[in-house]
């Protein structure tokens, strides 16, 4: 790790202007991924701008019934917040399915969205990786890629996004709020992360110098039945092999709203729009769920060693859809 300068920002304006005046800056949130990558030499900032003490550490209800989560709210506090647990259970469950208690106590909302892939080739400076070093090649495509993408990958990159939280945000129609040199703006959570294409070095749509200031959970999905489920190699403290977040509203015996997003299948949380369309207006039967999910996954392009992800994702989605339906119909969790 190279030496670096350190700036503690007291306000968003201070942070973004410090970023502008210090070439090679990075914002420091909980550090759970950035410090890790700095130790590996993957990240080499000249200056760290500490944003953990910005006044962005609250969760507030907005007048329209939406919930605004500050960027520095820690993952554990977000997961435990009564309004989040009651109105957006998939988000709370996704957070709690990730990492460990210690990491969730440090990791921030903004930082969680900006964590990098855990692809072993990305983390190893001695190997080629187009994401880390554009043009160097991809070690994973013909290498060890059991954990890699089956959807939306490119010749340049087959990495997956490791976040659990981002999958729930995508399904819940969350928005990401940003502030930066060109002012404040927001983007749909589902559009925040990118597919790799020929620019795998670019994980998200964030612009240079922009800072995540918060995440907004909309009123529209507040209180809807939702859930998150993840499959993994050990019972806790490991990244997803596949995961799914589902938001489901039944109306008059048919699906009135479905939000479905997969994790660990692609370079970004994979919002399953085709499946959602197929579900809208359909009776909530297992057959309908299977049909819709298989429609979505029909475009999967598994690699040599990760074809299992397709049936795994299908099973997870059908299972969560079925359980949410049972809950909606019986009024209690099954």
């Amino acid at each position: 790790m190279k030496e670096f300068a350190y700036v503690r920002a007291g306000s968003v304006e201070e942070a973004t202007s410090a970023f502008a005046s210090h070439p090679g800056s990075r914002y420091l949130g909980g550090g759970t991924n950035l410090v890790d990558l700095m130790k590996l030499g993957v990240e080499t900032p000249a200056t760290l701008i500490d944003v953990t003490r910005l006044p962005l550490d609250t969760i507030d209800e907005l007048p329209d019934g939406a919930l605004r989560v500050g960027a520095t709210v820690r993952n554990s506090d977000l997961a435990a917040h009564p309004l989040v647990r009651d109105r957006y259970p998939a988000l709370s469950q996704a957070l709690l399915a990730g990492a460990s208690g210690q990491l969730r106590n440090a990791a921030t909302t903004g930082g969680n969205l900006l964590q990098r892939t855990r692809c072993p080739y990305f983390q190893d400076l001695s190997k080629p990786c187009n994401k880390r070093e554009p043009g160097s090649g991809c070690g994973a495509r013909d290498g060890v890629h059991r954990d890699h993408a089956v959807l939306g990958h490119s010749a340049h990159c087959i990495a997956t996004n490791p976040s659990d939280m981002a999958v729930a945000l995508a399904a819940l129609d969350g928005r990401v709020e940003l502030d930066g040199p060109e002012g404040a703006r927001s983007v749909e959570a589902v559009d925040f992360h990118r597919l790799p294409g020929d620019r795998p070095e670019q994980d998200t749509e964030i612009r240079p110098g922009e800072l995540i200031t918060g995440v907004v959970l909309p009123a529209a999905t507040a209180g809807l039945p939702s859930a998150y489920r993840k499959a993994r190699d050990r019972a806790s403290y490991s990244f997803a092999l596949a995961s799914v977040a589902v938001v489901l509203r039944l109306e008059g015996g048919v699906v009135g709203h479905a939000g479905l997003a997969f994790g660990a299948l692609a370079h970004r949380p994979w919002r399953a729009r085709r499946a959602e369309e197929a579900l809208l207006g359909a009776a909530p039967t297992r057959a309908a769920f299977e049909h819709a999910v298989e429609l979505e996954l029909s475009e999967a392009q598994p690699l040599r060693d990760n074809a299992y992800k397709v049936p795994l994702a299908r099973n997870l989605a059908v299972d969560v859809l079925t359980r949410l339906t049972d809950t909606a119909l019986t009024g209690r969790a099954s």
């Binding site: 350190y6 420091l28 550090g31 410090v35 953990t52 208690g101 990491l103």
Partner: peptide, 11 residues
């Protein structure tokens, strides 16, 4: 509780 290996002391 936190992992002290991932926290810069200066922060």
């Amino acid at each position: 509780r936190v992992n002290s290996c991932l926290l810069f002391a200066v922060a």
